[in-house]
């Protein structure tokens, strides 16, 4: 297996990783972006990003492509492999992946977050058969049918509203008695006649043989059980940071978010974390990009200081 040398390696190709790549490449550092799946990360599944300053409205996948093209034009390299572990050598960082190995003077972790699953019977078996984590991908298959959305945050409302363009009825199932989503999304959701809300309720099972036929529900306060017939369940119940491959290496909080200082630096020399993987991230495209730019500038300074030519 070959080991390739870089100045800065960036793990994760969402908005944070793409922004770090742009700054690292523009600093004339040999920079590598490592992505295990789809460039853009979570926003590649977002139909419209409407809160990135200066861009009134853009498809998430298109925004990611534009960021990538911009960074590549300055020399950013990209590899589509998964990092399975990283370790500190004498002065540099070593990364094991599902492909080649990489060595870099500094590493910026922008591995982002993955959606949480319900963890109830039927969910895994019926994924792709009515259970979905991406309404923008799958809602069109449920034209004129009734569907459920689980969750009460921005993603749940955003995707629920998208599903409402196709479905005859969208039932939002939320475990609390109010939404956590931003005001504008809440206003749109409440104003949409296809959107219905079931409060203080959790899903206990996804029902169906070949395809989803309904969900079993339990009222979190009264304990009362019921069944809601739906053709699809779209799940948006938060996310967890993708930091498993760093366990035991770098200090994290109880939610497995990486602890960093104001320069996005971890306790370990030349190791930075930015975006959804770090503690106290606001989890926005704009804040992730800001974090990552800070980290890339810090990494550039670190290399100048620690590896004088």
């Amino acid at each position: 297996m070959v080991t390739r040398e870089y100045d800065i390696a960036i793990i994760g190709g969402g908005p944070a990783g793409l922004a770090a790549g742009l700054y690292a490449a523009r600093a004339r550092r040999r920079a590598l972006l490592i992505e295990k799946g789809v460039l853009g990360g979570q926003i590649s599944l977002t139909e419209l990003v409407e809160n990135y300053p200066g861009i009134p409205s853009i498809n998430g996948f298109d925004l990611a492509q534009a960021m990538h093209k911009q960074a590549e034009s300055y020399g950013l390299e990209t590899e589509y492999v998964e990092v399975t572990g990283i370790e500190r050598g004498n002065t540099k960082w070593l990364m094991r992946t599902t492909g080649d190995g990489f060595r870099a003077k500094a590493v910026i972790i922008t591995a982002g977050a993955d959606y949480n699953r319900l963890g109830v019977p039927g969910e895994e078996r019926l994924t792709g058969r009515g259970v979905s984590y991406c309404a923008t991908c799958d809602a069109a298959f449920f034209k004129g049918q009734e569907v459920a959305v689980v969750g009460g945050g921005d993603a749940a409302m955003d995707e629920g509203l998208f599903a409402a363009r196709f479905a005859s009825k969208v039932t939002v199932i939320h475990r609390r008695d109010q939404l956590r989503a931003g005001r504008i999304l809440q206003e749109r959701a409440f104003a949409n006649p296809a959107m219905n809300f079931v409060w203080n309720t959790v899903v206990t099972e996804v029902l169906g043989d070949e395809q989803v036929s309904g969900v079993r529900l339990r009222n979190a306060i009264t304990g009362e059980e019921s069944t809601l017939p739906v053709a699809a369940v779209f799940v948006f119940i938060g996310q967890h940071p993708n930091t498993d491959f760093l366990k035991g290496l770098v200090p994290m909080d109880a939610g497995h978010h990486i602890l960093v200082d104001d320069w996005m630096a971890t306790e370990l020399p030349g190791l930075y974390a930015a975006g959804d993987v770090r503690q106290n991230s606001a989890r926005q495209v704009a804040t992730s990009v800001g974090d990552a730019v800070t980290a890339a500038i810090a990494a550039d300074h670190y290399i100048s200081d620690s590896f004088p030519d």
Partner: peptide, 28 residues
Amino acid sequence: YGIRSIPTLLVFKGGEPVAQVIGFRPKS
């Protein structure tokens, strides 16, 4: 073919679907 999620890749052999991949998966 009961497609309820895309991307879905279906592999046919002898007219029958014999393998299915739902969602984005690495080339390997």
